[in-house]
């Protein structure tokens, strides 16, 4: 027992029930499999109402596919295919949180199939692909290498440290951008806005 002896040991079934997280190295994947075709049907039935038949997104609901090569654009489209570093994230997230409003209702095989479908929609696997706990680690996403550890300490902190100018810091000053012109603030904003 620990110092306090409080709480109790978790039972194997309890740990199994909650320990559903999946890591990039495949740790946590349940046994199972599912292919793109099965995934397509499941996706259309359970997901397409929000995310669109091909993951293209409906209204303001999240876009799940496309955007390849857009990350340096003025308006990047960040999707599983264009931005996400790991496929394990997709499996884990669908399993824990989707479909929105009915989380944790999908069986492992269904999650494999839907994941396969979304990888297919993102050009990561071909139409015949079957995803399983065994081949999961073979999946690599194109943007993985573009993620790097927070480097603000090196890149910014030094520049942003030190006594700043207090007097006669500029000759003159002009307004360069105005929120009122953009005009996207909720009308019922309180105070003088009403």
């Amino acid at each position: 027992a620990g110092k306090y002896g409080l709480g109790r040991e978790a039972t194997p079934d309890e740990v199994k029930a909650w320990d559903i997280d999946v890591r990039p190295d495949g740790t946590g994947l349940p046994k199972g499999k599912g292919n793109v075709e099965m995934g397509e049907e499941l996706f259309i039935d359970n997901c397409a109402s929000c995310h669109g038949d091909f993951g293209e997104g409906v209204d303001r609901w999240p876009v799940l596919s496309g955007g390849h090569g857009s990350l340096k654009d003025e308006r990047p489209v960040k999707t599983i295919g264009s931005y996400w570093p790991y496929a394990s994230t997709l499996f884990d997230y669908i399993q824990r949180a989707m479909p929105f409003g009915a989380a944790q209702t999908l069986e492992p095989d269904e999650v494999y199939a839907i994941t396969a479908y979304l990888l297919n929609m993102n050009d990561v696997v071909d139409d015949e692909f079957e995803l399983s706990d065994e081949n999961f680690k073979t999946i690599k996403l194109e943007n993985e290498e573009n993620f790097f550890m927070d480097d603000r300490a090196d890149k910014e902190l030094k520049e942003f440290t030190g006594e700043p100018c207090m007097k006669e810091c500029k000759k003159s000053v002009e307004i360069t951008k105005r929120a009122v012109i953009v005009d996207v603030t909720p009308e019922e904003g309180g105070g003088a806005l009403e």
Binding site: A10, D13, E14, A17, F100, G101, A102, Q104, T105
Partner: peptide, 19 residues
């Protein structure tokens, strides 16, 4: 019961699933 565990853990609860 001990091996199985408590139902609030072993069964998905409404607040784990519904919005």
């Amino acid at each position: 019961a001990l091996a199985a565990g408590e139902k609030v853990i072993t069964e998905v609860q409404p607040w784990n699933s519904e919005l």
